[in-house]
Write a protein that binds this DNA or RNA. Structure first.
Lengths: 146, 146
DNA sequence: TTTGATTAGTTGCACAAACAACTATATGCC
DNA sequence: GGCATATAGTTGTTTGTGCAACTAATCAAA
């Protein structure tokens, strides 16, 4: 028997991602309260563009672990909110490079502060060494399945 | 500074629940390959009914961390698949008690095997003591935010 | 016992995810 | 060059989520 350490009730939490769902909801509420008209999913796309602008949609797929249709629609919505712009690549006209608007650049600091705030609330009174182990395990899980 | 152990890249994984998303996708694929016409979300509702039949929709909300409209629609779809039945409570006619059909009872064993299989794949080569710590941390996070 | 508040569930809407099928462009091989 | 194949992105469909507004039933207090 392999790593079968999961009683039934624990199995459930792992599959459904109770903790990460709770984190995302908390962050979404913070966005709403701050008047940021932005979903967590939209934020997760901007997150990567803030690190590196001009990514292609395919690169955003890889970065965000979403499929192409999901990114198409997220970019649609971000464009409608005037936060990003699609720019056709010069070299390869199949490719859209995604650029941030002024408005999106202004959102970075505020939203990142709220995200860190959320994580601090989530991890309050959790010992630092345990957090380290937890991060390791989650990365390991991801690597096992990807 | 509180538990601010998160470099930016790690923050992202925690908020987006990379690991649990990967687990859910893997399980969904196993369902599909096995010919189980069932979403993970539907499974998560059945999961609780297998433990205790005749729960109200509100109780299912609490058990699955979903809001009332989500449960309404999940029960709608489960009813359409002929897996559950709504039965009005005798005592309180506002309440729907949810009962499993024969067909749903038959799904329990097979789907639970696939779920455990998925977790074993996810946790392959992860040391048991680290898994314990990880579970603790995730529960702690959930308690901090709920 | 009637009225006001609470609770259980439903419906409408906007957004997102997964899959399949599609278009358009690029590449590689003959 | 021309055709097969691969790649980037889009569209349609079904399902799920979160919020707000709603209905119906119950409860509680005057």
């Amino acid at each position: 028997m392999p790593n079968n350490q999961f009683k039934k009730g624990e199995l459930y939490s792992f599959v459904t991602g109770k903790a990460s769902t709770a984190i995302a909801r908390r962050l979404q509420k913070k966005f709403n309260n701050a008047g940021l008209n932005l979903t967590i999913e939209q934020w997760s796309v901007l997150y990567h563009l803030w690190k590196q602008e001009g990514m292609s949609q395919q690169e955003l797929c890889n970065a965000t672990f979403r499929d192409k249709p999901s990114i198409t629609r997220l970019v649609d919505n971000l464009e409608r909110l005037d936060l990003v712009k699609r720019v056709a690549s010069e070299n390869d006209r199949r490719i859209n490079l995604i650029y941030l608007t002024r408005q999106a650049q202004k959102l970075q600091e505020q939203s990142m502060i709220l995200a860190e705030e959320t994580l601090n609330e989530a991890l309050e009174t959790v010992p630092v060494d345990k957090i380290e182990v937890c991060k390791e395990v989650l990365q390991h899980v991801y690597d096992n399945l990807k």
